[in-house]
C-alpha cells in the first residue's frame, strides 16, 4: 500500500506515534519544555549538592551547601562592602575593554579592507596573539607597579589582538559587490568606507565585542588574584586566607552572573540597534 492511500485514522495514528517519541533527530520542541528541562538540570545539580552536604558525605568546611553560599551573599554585601569590589571589577572591565575597542575597531576594519594595511600589521598582530597575556604579568608589575594601570594593561593585552583579528576577518567577509555597487554608483574611497564598509560592519563589530568580553572576564580574575586589594578576585583571595569557601563560591557565581548579564545586554542592544537584520 502506498503512503497516499492510508486512511485518515491511519494517518492520525502515524502522527500520534511520531509525537510520542522522546528523542527525534533535529525535531524542535515547545518553549515550555525548553524551560522545564533547563530548570530541571539546575534543580538536580543543587539537589545533589545540598543532599551531599546534609548527609555529611563531604567536609562541610571545604564544601558548604548551596544555601550557605546564598546567605554569604547577604553577609558580603551588608558587612563586607562587596559592592565596592564588584564596582571595581566592573570599572576595570569597562575601561580596559573600551580602550581595546578604540584601537581594535578602526585597525581591524582597515586591515580587513585594505591589503596593504593587513600586510603591514598582521605579522605583528598574529605574533602577539600567540603570546599568553598572563606571561606579561611580571613585566607589567615591574613597569607599572601593582596599581590600576597594570591591571588595565593586562586586560587590554588579553583581548586586543583577538579583537583586531576577529574584526579583520569580519571585514574581509563583507560581500565585495557591496563595495563594487557603491563604486559604480560614483562613490569615492572615503564615501565607500563610511557609507558601506562601516555600516555593514557594525553588527559584526558588536558580535566580536560580545565574544571577546567573555574572555576579558577571564583575565580580570587573573589580574585580581595576582596583585589587588579590591575587586571580586581580591575578595576571593581574602576569603581563601580565612577559609571562607562560601564566599569564594559567591565570587565565582557573581562573575558568572555578570558575564551572563553583559551577554544578554549586548544581544538586546544588537536587536535594538539593527532591526533590519535577520534574527540571529
Amino acid at each position: 500500500m502506498s503512503e497516499y492511500s492510508l486512511s485518515s485514522t491511519q494517518r492520525e495514528e502515524r502522527t500520534v506515534r511520531r509525537k510520542s517519541r522522546l528523542f527525534e533527530f533535529n525535531q524542535s520542541i515547545p518553549f515550555g519544555s525548553v524551560l522545564r528541562l533547563g530548570f530541571t538540570a539546575w534543580f538536580i545539580f543543587f539537589g545533589i549538592w545540598e543532599l551531599a552536604v546534609l548527609l555529611k558525605l563531604t567536609n562541610a568546611v571545604l564544601l558548604p551547601g548551596p544555601f550557605t553560599v546564598l546567605t554569604s551573599f547577604v553577609e558580603l554585601f551588608t558587612a563586607k562592602n562587596y559592592l565596592y569590589d564588584v564596582g571595581m571589577s566592573l570599572f576595570r572591565i569597562v575601561v580596559s575593554f573600551t580602550l581595546a575597542c578604540m584601537l581594535a575597531i578602526p585597525l581591524g576594519i582597515l586591515m580587513g579592507t585594505f591589503r596593504r594595511v593587513e600586510a603591514f600589521f598582521n605579522p605583528l598582530v598574529s605574533a602577539f596573539r600567540y603570546l599568553p597575556a598572563p606571561s606579561f604579568i611580571p613585566l607589567l608589575l615591574m613597569w607599572l607597579g601593582a596599581g590600576e594601570a597594570q591591571k588595565l594593561a593586562l586586560l587590554f593585552l588579553g583581548v586586543v589582538w583577538f579583537l583586531i583579528t576577529l574584526i579583520m576577518d569580519y571585514a574581509k567577509s563583507l560581500p565585495a559587490d557591496f563595495v563594487n555597487s557603491a563604486l559604480t554608483l560614483g562613490g569615492n574611497r572615503r564615501q565607500v568606507l563610511w557609507t558601506v564598509v562601516v555600516p555593514a560592519m557594525l553588527p559584526d563589530i558588536l558580535t566580536a565585542m560580545r565574544q571577546m568580553l567573555a574572555v576579558s572576564w577571564t583575565y580580570l580574575v587573573i589580574a585580581e588574584i595576582v596583585a589587588a586589594s579590591s575587586g571580586i578576585g581580591a575578595m576571593m583571595m581574602r576569603a581563601k586566607r580565612f577559609v571562607h569557601i562560601d564566599e569564594i563560591m559567591a565570587g565565582i557565581i557573581t562573575i558568572g552572573l555578570l558575564g551572563l548579564v553583559f551577554d544578554i545586554l549586548l544581544r538586546r542592544l544588537r536587536r535594538m540597534l539593527f532591526p533590519y537584520l535577520d534574527s540571529e
Partner: peptide
Amino acid sequence: VGPSRERGMVFQSYTSFPW
C-alpha cells in the same frame, strides 16, 4: 580608468544594502 557613475552596474548577488 576606474569605476564611474556614468557606467552603472547590477550584480548577480543581492547588493541592496540591508541597513
